[in-house]
């Protein structure tokens, strides 16, 4: 079943149009990676799908329902969570309070879920009463993922989860993303780290100049000559 679909989405900032009609499709429990050069509109696509930017033309479908132009608050309630690329934790709040904020709209008892999420990230769990601003870059990224999981989303949108992380942390973050998918969450991520992210993806999309350039399974894109030349450095 198709979990999330963007159809011919047109969007941008102010006068500038960045996406000129981009389409992606995410099936249940899939990891979909979006790669492409800087300025291709990868982050813009995520923000538009999530309702942070107005969708000028085209449609966004979530679980078969048309959610075009809905606010982020509505998206969160419907089961879509988004992790921004940077500044994705509340620095003066403790780790635990960050997770509580992730569960802000939950009216039920979210404690069991919090323990479950913390168990996924042992590093972060050890420091649950530390202020998030004092965590290392990798730990912050883990906390950002954990925060987004508090609502038990059906789809997770990740904007460059491996950005500015040390190589061993990148590996760890990708391993966690795989774990999250295994727990039944579909994932859409934008990545610079094309090789590593395509390896664990079911599908990949290449965007260029605000348009779809290529698409295929993760492996087929890894083998593709054009992708290799443009984004994998050889």
């Amino acid at each position: 079943m198709t979990m999330l679909e963007a159809r011919e989405v047109v969007s941008g900032y102010g006068e500038v149009e960045i996406l000129h009609g981009v389409s992606i499709k995410v099936e249940e429990e899939q990891i979909v990676t979006i790669i492409g050069p800087n300025g291709a509109g990868k982050s813009t696509l995520l923000k538009t799908v999530f309702g942070l930017l107005p969708c000028r033309r085209g449609r966004v479908l979530f679980g078969g329902e048309d959610v075009t132009g809905q606010s982020p608050q509505t998206m969160v309630r419907k089961g879509m969570c988004y992790v921004p690329q940077s500044e994705n934790v509340f620095p003066t709040l403790t780790v635990q309070e960050n997770l509580e904020m992730g569960a802000f709209i939950r009216r039920d008892n979210y404690r069991p879920k919090m323990e479950e999420v913390l168990a996924l990230f042992p590093d972060v769990m050890e420091r649950r009463h530390t202020r998030a601003g004092k965590l290392s870059g990798g730990q912050r990224q883990m906390l950002a993922l954990a925060r987004a999981l508090m609502l038990e989303p059906r789809v997770l949108l990740l904007d460059e989860p491996s950005a500015s992380l040390a190589p061993n942390m990148v590996e760890l973050v990708f391993a966690k993303i795989s774990d999250i998918r295994r727990s039944g969450v579909a994932i859409v991520m934008v990545e610079q780290n094309a090789r590593e992210s395509l390896k664990l993806s079911n599908r990949g999309y290449v965007l260029a100049m605000g348009e779809n350039r290529l698409e295929g399974t993760g492996e087929s894109l890894l083998d593709s000559e054009e992708v290799g030349r443009l984004y994998l450095g050889g």
Binding site: L52, Q73, V76, R77, P91, M101, R147
Partner: peptide, 13 residues
């Protein structure tokens, strides 16, 4: 949370 980061507060719902 909102005083820390308005955007993140919004995306958290």
């Amino acid at each position: 949370a909102m005083s820390d980061n308005l955007e993140l507060a919004r995306v958290s719902g």
